[in-house]
């Protein structure tokens, strides 16, 4: 699968409080959550993000609280793909579970800036800066996570397995 979009660039250790501050967690509606996404760190984000944009970050993206509101807000804002050097584990699971792919870059994404266009090819494991032509290696998505993304998230995945196999039953 291939992606092409505009970059929103973030640094290291972006925690879930910065993605969506806790005071907004009195809501579960993702459209409302998206309106507060990165409101402290990047006040321009919610207004200017476009459908299909790509979020690029450094190490330990999504650390801190387990709030799924964080990837939900990012996804509902229009971001279609995250590429970071590494993730906090709960965020990583949450992103795939809601059908938002989170790729790991194998090298620092230093040359990337806000608003440049990039393409990402999962087959070749490459992220390409379409302005400079520079390319970066990204790790293949682990097979199990790929199945979840292919199903459209954990809910459809589990429904499918419950239909197919006896040992995953829904009570």
């Amino acid at each position: 699968m291939d992606y092409e979009g505009r970059v929103w660039k973030f640094g290291d250790n972006v925690d879930t409080d910065l993605i969506i501050p806790a005071r907004f967690l009195n809501e579960s509606d993702e459209t409302i959550l998206a309106g507060h996404c990165f409101s402290e760190l990047r006040p321009d984000f919610a207004e200017e993000v476009k459908q299909g944009d790509i979020l690029v970050a450094g190490t330990n993206f999504g650390c801190g609280s387990s709030r799924e509101h964080a990837p939900l807000a990012i996804k509902a804002s229009g971001i279609r793909l995250i590429v970071a050097q590494s993730y906090a584990r709960i965020f990583y699971r949450n992103a795939f579970n809601i059908g938002l792919p989170a790729l790991e870059a194998e090298e620092p994404l230093e040359g990337l800036r806000d608003r440049i266009r990039v393409s990402v090819s999962l087959e070749s494991g490459r992220l390409r800066d379409l302005e400079s032509g520079r390319s970066y290696r990204v790790r293949p998505i682990p097979p199990f996570m790929r199945e979840i993304i292919r199903a459209g998230g954990l809910v459809p995945y589990v429904k499918g397995r419950a239909r197919a196999e006896g040992n995953w039953r829904l009570y």
């Binding site: 387990s66 709960i90 699971r93 949450n94 809601i98 589990v158 419950a162 995953w168 009570y171």
Partner: peptide, 18 residues
């Protein structure tokens, strides 16, 4: 261990997780 809400909803419905 901590997880997000989707993982938890699936556990409520199946008793299992990965």
């Amino acid at each position: 261990a901590g997880v997000g809400s989707t993982d938890l909803g699936v556990i409520w419905a199946t008793g299992k997780t990965w």
